[in-house]
Nucleic acid binder design. Structure first.
Length: 292
DNA sequence: GTGTTTGTTATCAA
DNA sequence: CTTGATAACAAACA
């Protein structure tokens, strides 16, 4: 699922692909998740130039000429796939049955394509979403600024300090550590994969209560979070589910995952067994031999 | 037909 | 105010 590294990978690729391009049109067959409305978005982004693309937490913020911002959230199963130039008309037939994981440029749009942005040079950006939880929003600068301030600390900014990280844990002393890491209003960008991976790297069980963590453990966790996210960005993200890069290819992070999706396998660090449990309704992976 | 998968928000309970 | 539990959203897969 798209978390910080996946969204950041897409942001970088998207910047290279569409910055300075002019939006020609917008299409959707799922207007429910387009705000304020599909027709408003269509009308208001036509002819606008992509000035910049930023990211806040797991949201892409596309700055358009004219002062508005286009926000995209991929939620669980969203894909953004970019097609540089026009293919023969026959390639645009709606093709049913293609598994979204297969991605690819040659069979788009497919049955999971719910939004298409087209550009004046003929390029297209496909937003596919198997579960249809993802959304598109057009907002003013004021609304975009509010969104930015509503989220917690970004792990790659100066704001992410050991002091602030410690304060967060102290503010919610009775929460399990994973629950704090997952809370986007406290720390932004971590989802299920990188929470579990961060806890493993810090040798801390995700079930630990925040107030019980020792100073050294908090520090280990603090240091390991940006490290893991950086590695995941270097590898262009984790394609565990439907996530693919902007060109439709898979991310390369899976071989570097230590616990996520490795239940019943041997721990890469201590040869213990990786367990999977439910924690606050989430699948949670850990090694109970070397995480404490 | 059932359980599983998960980001986010809403709602209700203690 | 904190926390936990549950549902909702939607759809595929085993």
């Amino acid at each position: 699922m798209p978390e910080l590294p996946e969204v950041e990978t897409l942001r970088r690729e998207l910047t290279k692909a569409v910055k300075a391009k002019t939006v020609k049109d917008f299409w959707t067959d799922w207007p429910k998740n387009v705000k304020p409305s599909a027709s408003t978005v269509k009308t208001k982004i036509k002819g606008k130039i992509i000035l910049d693309i930023r990211r806040r937490a797991k949201i892409l913020i596309i700055k358009l000429s004219g002062g508005n911002f286009l926000l995209i959230h991929l939620k669980l199963t969203g894909q953004l796939i970019y097609q540089p130039k026009k293919l023969p008309a026959t390639s645009y037939k709606l093709i049913a049955g293609g598994h979204p994981q297969k991605g690819g440029l040659d069979n788009l749009p497919n049955k999971f394509t719910h939004y298409i942005f087209s550009f004046s040079d003929g390029a297209k950006l496909f937003f596919n979403d198997l579960r249809k939880f993802g959304w598109v929003k057009l907002v003013s600068k004021l609304q975009a600024d509010k969104l930015v301030s509503d989220f917690g600390i970004e792990p790659f900014t100066r704001d992410f300090t050991l002091k602030k990280f410690t304060e967060i844990l102290q503010r919610y002393p009775n929460r399990k550590i994973k629950q704090i890491l997952l809370d986007q209003t406290l720390i932004s960008g971590l989802g299920n994969i990188y929470c579990d991976e961060s806890c493993f790297a810090a040798k801390i069980l995700p079930t630990r209560i925040a107030r019980m963590l020792k100073e050294q453990e908090i520090k280990r966790l603090f240091l390991v979070i940006p490290k893991i996210l950086k590695l995941a960005i270097d590898k262009k993200g984790t394609s565990a589910d439907t996530y693919v890069q902007l060109d439709g290819s898979q991310g390369g992070m899976i071989p570097y995952l230590k616990v996520y999706g490795r239940q019943k396998q041997k721990c890469k660090r201590c040869r213990g067994l990786i367990h999977k449990i439910k924690l606050n309704g989430r699948g949670t992976h850990f090694c109970n031999s070397c995480q404490h």
